[in-house]
Computed example of a mutant assay.
Amino acid sequence: MPAIHKPLFHRHQWSALLASRSKFGGKMNDIRIGIIGSGGMASRHAQHFSRTDGFELIAIAARNIETGPALANKHGIDYLPTYREILKRDDIDAIAICTYNDTHSEIALAALDANKHVFTEYPAARNIDEAQQLLSRIDHSSRVLRVGHNEVLSPSHRALKRQTAQTGNLITALFTRLTPGRGQRPEILFNISISGPPALFFVYNIYPLVDCFGPATWVEAAAHYENLRDDSTYDSFANSVTVGFENGGIGQWNWAGGIEISDAEEYRRIVMTDGTLINRGDGWHLSTKSSEHDLPAAEPSDVTIQTQFLKDIHNGNWQTDARTAINAALIGLVAERSIEENRRVPLSELLQ
């Protein structure tokens, strides 16, 4: 049996303590959550969930026998060595997945099978089969699947989505980002087998367009990796992805990272029949033949991604966001297939 590190304070075992939770502060209705992972993202989510009213942080599950117990001890909660151990716990209602990209969907599917609500970092999946399995669960699951895309809460994105609904039909959307080789980045990011191609770990650039214009019907992609090694790591990259959207129009993303450039640069344009939306780094603008004006931002909200997850659990209405997150990830996954096979790939070939 694997070792379980217990804090001195065993909150999930003492019935007297549970009674006091109900009597003092109404804590019996808290969602009891466990964190899977113990890196930087897990630490941030552990801090946020522990400070969010409506959640109670119960346990950390992590393979790392140094950072896992340290994070659990910091919060005075249990440490478990594997995610399967945390899914067996009856005193945990929900889990937050903060692991490497290649395990997100595996753990999410197992957690849903274990009747847990799921919060996961993006991307939603690392392979097409597991993405399809997640899509099939959405309409039939009694448990929530929330992927950690903050765009749903962003006033700028909500203003963009509102404007695209009023500006005719999409013609083309263009995104380009160049990033230098200096600076801090996780070494695991430049590892194809674990993190996926750039179109997958930059899925947060894809998500806004899928949210505005719907899923893709076909994907065509190309990539170059500088000094690609046998262990699938590399030093720099270029990745280009083009899609046809189900509702019409074309989207294109271009990324180059780890390259010789002094500062990061980004180009974003959305060309529609009744105007062009432009972002020069200072928010979105609507440009027509006669004028250009700023888009008024949507009303700011004090909702965080953690409180949104809590609202999902209590009120439902999470399914549309989950589909958008999975469909955005599918573009990156099908782009990988397109690169391998050197052809345009219709999603109808892969999705059932």
Rank of each mutant, 00 (worst) to 15 (best):
V219R: 00
V219C: 01
V219P: 01
V219W: 02
E220S: 12
E220M: 09
E220D: 08
A221Q: 01
A221I: 00
A221Y: 02
A222F: 13
A222T: 13
A222S: 15
A223M: 09
A223D: 07
A223F: 03
H224S: 14
Y225K: 01
N227Q: 13
N227S: 11
N227Y: 05
N227C: 12
L228E: 01
L228T: 00
L228D: 00
L228V: 00
D230Y: 05
S232D: 07
S232A: 08
T233R: 06
Y234A: 02
D235N: 13
D235L: 09
S236M: 12
S236H: 07
F237A: 07
F237V: 09
N239W: 04
S240Y: 14
S240G: 14
V241S: 04
T242D: 10
V243H: 06
V243T: 11
G244H: 06
F245G: 06
E246V: 04
N247H: 11
I250N: 14
I250G: 14
G251N: 02
Q252G: 09
W253Y: 05
W253A: 00
W255L: 05
W255H: 03
A256F: 01
A256K: 01
G257E: 01
G257W: 00
G258P: 08
E260Q: 12
S262F: 11
S262Y: 12
D263R: 10
D263S: 14
E265L: 11
E266H: 09
E266D: 14
Y267F: 11
R268A: 05
R268M: 02
I270R: 02
I270C: 03
I270Q: 03
